[in-house]
């Protein structure tokens, strides 16, 4: 179920003195099974773009096609699209409202109009995917849980709709290292095991480097770069111009190269840089 964004522009508060162009002629296609990281400075248009992918926002001009279907066209059931393109907002635990974990996760499937049996199957399945014990937690109040658990319940609430595409807006924001690791792990498994297409907005370049197969860089409402992590991170200077960081491994590779130590162009993973250092040290070339 590919998503095509064609010439999309979006203007906030058109006609008022606060008018701002959040997206400016954005073109991109997200294919089935991809793991896409969306990066960019705050205000670069990432979040606005993400809300176009399931029709929460409609483009001022241009169009968004999900599975070939124009979201803005009359007769398109936007709700049906939202079940296929799941969107996990930033700090999703803020949307929890039901009395129990089970009921909250069931909210999406219920809106889908599914049978009770199917709903409870999906709740169990979603809880398993986010590594929450059904027996232990399903009847607990969502407000009794820890922050990390609440976040996972919220993600389970979207997963229970069994979307083909999962869009996550900074899923790890505000978590401690352990919580971050858990969330990233479950996203990785979801992609690997179920082949769910993932679009992840992230500020952590190290996470992006570790997970994504494709990186889209937004800047001032436009797509500034679109390529593999290797391609994108090899342009460290351009990224820094846009106010973005590069993974520390890239920074190290650049610094080592400047000192004459041969690190392959495009190396962006810590392992790659480590291998280059080891190879260099083993060979024992002239000191720098």
């Amino acid at each position: 179920m590919p998503i095509a964004v064609e010439g999309v522009s979006y203007v906030y508060m058109a006609g008022s003195p606060y008018e701002t162009k959040a997206l400016d002629n954005v073109n991109l296609t997200i294919e089935d099974g991809e793991f896409v990281a969306l990066i960019g400075h705050t205000g670069s248009g990432k979040s606005t773009l993400v809300q176009h992918l399931n029709g929460l926002l409609s483009p001022t001009s241009g169009r968004v096609l999900v599975d070939g279907q124009d979201l803005a066209q009359k007769g398109t059931d936007k709700r049906a699209v939202r079940f296929r393109v799941g969107l996990v907002f930033q700090y999703p635990e803020n949307q929890l409202f039901e009395e129990t974990v089970e009921k909250d996760i069931a909210f999406g499937p219920k809106n889908l109009g599914l049978a009770q049996e199917e709903i409870s199957r999906r709740v169990k399945d979603a809880m398993r995917r986010v590594a929450l014990s059904y027996d232990e937690l399903s009847q607990r109040s969502v407000f009794e849980l820890s922050g990390g658990q609440m976040r996972r319940v919220a993600i389970a609430g979207v997963l229970a709709m069994e979307p083909k595409v999962l869009v996550l807006d900074e899923p790890c924001a505000g978590l401690d290292p352990h919580g971050r690791e858990e969330i990233l792990g479950l996203i990785r498994r979801l992609h690997a095991e179920s082949g769910t297409t993932i679009v992840m907005v992230s500020h952590s370049m190290d996470d992006v480097a570790n997970l994504a197969e494709r990186v889209i860089v937004m800047d001032h409402g436009t797509v500034a770069m679109d390529g593999t992590p290797r391609e994108v991170f090899s342009r460290g200077d351009r990224l820094r111009e846009m106010g973005l960081d590069v993974p520390q491994a890239v920074e190290l590779a650049e610094a080592l190269r400047a000192r004459g130590i041969p690190v392959p162009q495009g190396a962006y993973l810590p392992g790659e840089v480590a291998r280059a250092i080891l190879a260099f040290a083993g060979k024992g070339e002239e000191p720098c």
Binding site: R82, L87, N94, L112
Partner: peptide, 16 residues
């Protein structure tokens, strides 16, 4: 702002 965000989040879960 928060109300808008929550409303959208629930709409993303199929709320009508």
């Amino acid at each position: 702002e928060e109300a808008d965000k929550i409303q959208k989040a629930q709409m993303a879960r199929g709320a009508d």
